[in-house]
Amino acid sequence: MTAALGAASLMVELLSAYADQPEPRSVAVVGNQPLAPDPVRAKAVDDCDLVIRVNGFVTDDPGGPETTGRKVHAVVFNRAVRATRHVFRDYHRRLYLLVEPGRLHWEPEALPGWWPADLGFVPVPNREVLLPLSDALGLPTRTEPTWSTTGTLAAWIAHTSFPRAQLVLTGFSFIDNPHQTSWEHASGDSCIVGPEHQIAAEGRLLESWTRTGDTVLLR
């Protein structure tokens, strides 16, 4: 086993360790699309054995509207994360996975200066995780600065790490709106869709999983 393959295996082992049970039967990946309250959706997310959230996510507050649940086992983030008050809550009980596709081209290694000094993270290996996803999307990431969004990369991690588990996806706006040029986030902020992303291709890939019977999309 190569060192890089070992890193990918370690990532899966850590995800299993943080999950409610060692072999998750269900995995939820929650994107940051603003969604209307829906107790059924929130319960479906929180009922999963492993819940992965992305970048500057939000969770439901106690006593507040039930939208995407409260459970968080793992956080998939990039260096440009806009941290909300939810991102570091109970951080000692969560796994933080750093995606760094830009390191293949120009991205610096430094973390934001406000990153907690006592919080470690696990880099997601580009060769074993990112590049196979780029191949599935038809993106020439090896030679050009183009790659998936963090949300799709989180979904890919879940899909490939636990292929026998039921995958629950929610909060992915580009599945229904593949031509948007800006994002609205559940946290209330917004930003442009980065030129490095090809979200129409990402939407087609995730939507194709829903036709296999192993993936559920909750709008």
Rank of each mutant, 00 (worst) to 15 (best):
P34L: 01
V27R: 06
Y96G: 02
V75G: 06
V124C: 07
P24T: 04
L205S: 15
G6T: 10
I175T: 15
I157G: 08
H86K: 08
Q33H: 10
V216E: 15
Y96L: 02
T160L: 00
P37W: 03
E13F: 09
P163E: 07
A7T: 10
V193T: 08
E202L: 00
V51S: 10
L97V: 07
F121H: 14
W115H: 03
G151A: 10
Y18F: 13
V124R: 09
L206V: 13
T2E: 05
L130M: 12
E23Q: 13
P39Q: 09
G151V: 08
W115A: 01
Y91M: 09
L15F: 04
P123A: 05
V99I: 11
L98P: 04
Y18S: 02
L167K: 05
W147T: 07
G64H: 11
R89Y: 06
A186L: 05
V87S: 05
T2L: 02
R79Q: 14
L14G: 05
A4W: 01
L50V: 08
L139D: 04
A80L: 15
A44F: 02
G194H: 08
L98Q: 09
R211I: 08
N32E: 10
V87E: 10
F121S: 06
W183C: 04
T146F: 00
T150M: 02
S173V: 14
H105V: 01
H159S: 03
G213R: 03
N126C: 06
A117T: 11
V99P: 00
A158Y: 06
F88E: 08
A7I: 07
P140K: 00
D60A: 02
G203D: 14
P101S: 10
S173K: 12
A19E: 14
G188R: 01
R85E: 15
P62F: 08
L218H: 12
D189Y: 05
V40P: 05
N126P: 01
R89T: 14
I52F: 12
D214G: 13
P116D: 09
P62M: 02
H73S: 03
R85V: 15
F121G: 03
P140M: 01
E207M: 14
C48D: 07
A110Y: 07
A8C: 12
H73M: 00
D49C: 01
M1C: 08
G102W: 08
V216C: 14
L139H: 01
T149D: 13
V216P: 09
L205G: 15
W147S: 08
T2N: 06
H159A: 03
D176R: 15
H159D: 05
A17G: 14
L217I: 14
L111A: 10
V30I: 11
P145V: 13
L35E: 06
L14H: 13
L97G: 00
V45F: 04
N32F: 06
Q180D: 14
R25W: 05
W114D: 15
G56Y: 10
F57C: 00
S187R: 12
D118V: 00
G151Q: 07
P24Q: 03
P22M: 09
R164A: 15
E128W: 11
G213K: 03
V30M: 04
S187E: 12
S161R: 01
D46K: 01
L130K: 04
E66F: 00
V129G: 02
Q180W: 07
T170N: 01
A44V: 04
I199S: 09
T212V: 02
D61N: 06
D46P: 02
N78C: 14
H105S: 01
V54Y: 03
I199H: 10
